[in-house]
Nucleic acid binder design. Structure first.
Lengths: 337, 337
DNA sequence: GTGAAAGCGCTAACAT
DNA sequence: ATGTTAGCGCTTTCAC
């Protein structure tokens, strides 16, 4: 009768060794499959002892000895933003596949808090940290923790001294706006963009301007609001107050697009009949928007894996851009399924 | 000129001690403010050395010695669900205030994966784990890791052997349904509920039935779908296919309510004119729904703090229910702001 | 193929 | 008030 063997105290490797009649070294060899070979019979005895004592290696001890913890940090602006929620999910899945645990923390999109977290997470003896930056708010990159591999994601441009990656905002914006122009024949496309440090080039706007130029259309108005639903809602008010309203608007994030949709709706403006909208991110949430949101989709899974990869790269500077594809739903004016 | 002093290798306490001209013990005393007093002047010398070497204590070593890591685990079904995203945010904030780091993992609402995570997180030398359970799917509670303080949240009923807490679903449902009955005069209220293990009492349904009974109305139809947007969308189809449609529906989560709203909208059914809806969770996302969602709100911050608290409690069994309040928006039929 | 032993960096008795 | 020192549990070199 398998009596639940409950030593409140965890068993140690030494105890396993004693029970199996071997030395602690052998226990280690068996559990880590190396670095020395062990006779099959001995190995089996060890495994049996492990089972009997419900032995789990003490990670702290292992980390102390080996110098690596099997944990990575993830700093996000907010998990309440559907894009970051999706990224978090994808990153955790990727990490889990490699046996890594993820320590998550939210910066609330405030640069100082982002900085604080990037500094404090490594105290927990982390193997690396990936930060979804909001640095564009300050123009100053997050000062990375010395000695801790750091990669910056959601970075549309290179970050000095670290591996960085992000969406190809130029291509994505162009994709979105071109759709509005080409298939729906809009001529006046507004843009609701995020707050951006003054001195930085704003790639998302470049893509938008290029698509407009290619179609021979004039750039429409641009309104800058935070990367949140509430920002999008404010943008709707601003846009509607304009002397001549745009007939379409491109939002630089799905969160903003959702707020925009809401603001338009409460003002009695119909989407897409009165104004078309397309977003940027391509989150699944968009499928449930009213109306369903057409949006340029970021390859979240690929980006998550790339981030994990970059963590292992020797320190250095790099920047990798990811192409987006358009998920067409109905907010742009396309017919529903 | 402050030359960035870059020893790629982290300084150790011993090095700090040497630089400050004291023993390692004193360094420890200063950093941990105890357990022995240190002369102010000495303490200052130590702090200066810490600064100079950019010393950060090695958490793994500390954990090994002290037996506690300052990390807690958080297992959620999905951070893509707005309620869990909000809970995660609140929990991280609470943990951060106490200097704790949070290791997060998503179970995707599959019980086996939940189980796996509850077992694997403690390997990382965690001080405790809180799991937002989906056990109602199986009726079987998550087998908690032996020796690791565990608390279950989102648990509407007690869980054998552990501290648990959750929303007072009876009260919350009653609140929501009573509003529909009393202020809006509905007589036929449907419910879209979650999938539930057959043998469990379903408190959310009790509250609903009680409110209905108090108003002298008949219970309407109930449809069971997963706790996700997609579930809510399916529910809409089911409800609309019914011979006599309810005039109002209560959804047991905001995620379901969002899907429901979407499904109703695509079928051309107006909310609240044709059918009123109220949700359960009271997430901020509801404010941006079309139309804005009236919903029973869970006290997320209080629950997060209580969960952290319960982690420190001596092992045992308890169950704490949290009351909800109604956030009234317009999906119920109330006028907009 | 297996064992003995050193030591990762820190804390907390226990000495002084 | 400060210093000495013994481990926490694990991995791994080195000897056998």
């Amino acid at each position: 009768m398998p009596q639940p063997p409950e030593p409140a105290r965890r068993a140690t490797a030494a105890e396993v060794a004693r029970l199996a009649g071997v030395s602690p070294a052998v226990v280690s060899y068996v559990l880590n499959e190396g670095p020395r070979p062990v006779a099959p019979a001995t190995a089996e005895r060890v495994r049996e002892a492990v089972r009997q004592l419900d032995y789990r290696p003490n990670r702290a001890a292992r980390a102390l000895r080996v110098g690596s913890t099997g944990m990575v940090g993830l700093v996000l602006p907010s998990v309440t933003n559907p894009f970051f929620a999706a990224f978090s999910e994808a990153f955790q899945a990727a990490a889990h596949d490699e046996g890594l645990a993820v320590i998550t923390a939210s910066s609330d999109a405030v640069p100082d808090r982002e900085q604080e977290l990037v500094e404090s997470l490594p105290r927990h003896g982390i193997d690396g940290v990936v930060v979804a930056t909001v640095m564009h708010l300050t123009g100053r990159p997050p000062a990375v923790a010395p000695g801790v591999p750091t990669v910056v994601v959601n970075a549309p441009f290179p970050v000095p001294g670290v591996h960085a990656l992000g969406p190809d905002t130029r291509q994505g914006a162009e994709l979105a706006v071109e759709h509005l122009l080409t298939v729906h024949g809009h001529r006046s496309v507004a843009m609701v963009s995020g707050e951006v440090a003054a001195e930085r080039p704003v790639a998302r706007e470049l893509g938008w301007q290029q698509a407009l130029a290619a179609a021979g259309a004039e750039p429409g108005p641009v309104v800058r609001v935070p990367f949140e639903r509430s920002g999008g809602q404010d943008a709707a008010a601003e846009l509607l107050a304009l002397p001549n309203r745009p007939t379409a608007v491109f939002a630089t994030s799905d969160a903003q697009a959702f707020g925009l949709l809401h603001g338009l709706w409460s003002a009695g403006v119909r989407v897409p009949e009165d104004v078309a909208v397309v977003g940027f991110d391509g989150t699944d949430d968009g499928a449930y928007a009213v109306p369903p949101l057409t949006s340029a989709r970021q390859p979240v899974a690929a980006m998550a894996e790339a981030a994990l990869d970059a963590l292992r790269q020797p320190a250095g500077e790099s920047h990798r851009l990811f192409a987006l594809d358009l998920v067409v739903r109905t907010s742009c004016g396309c017919p529903g399924a």
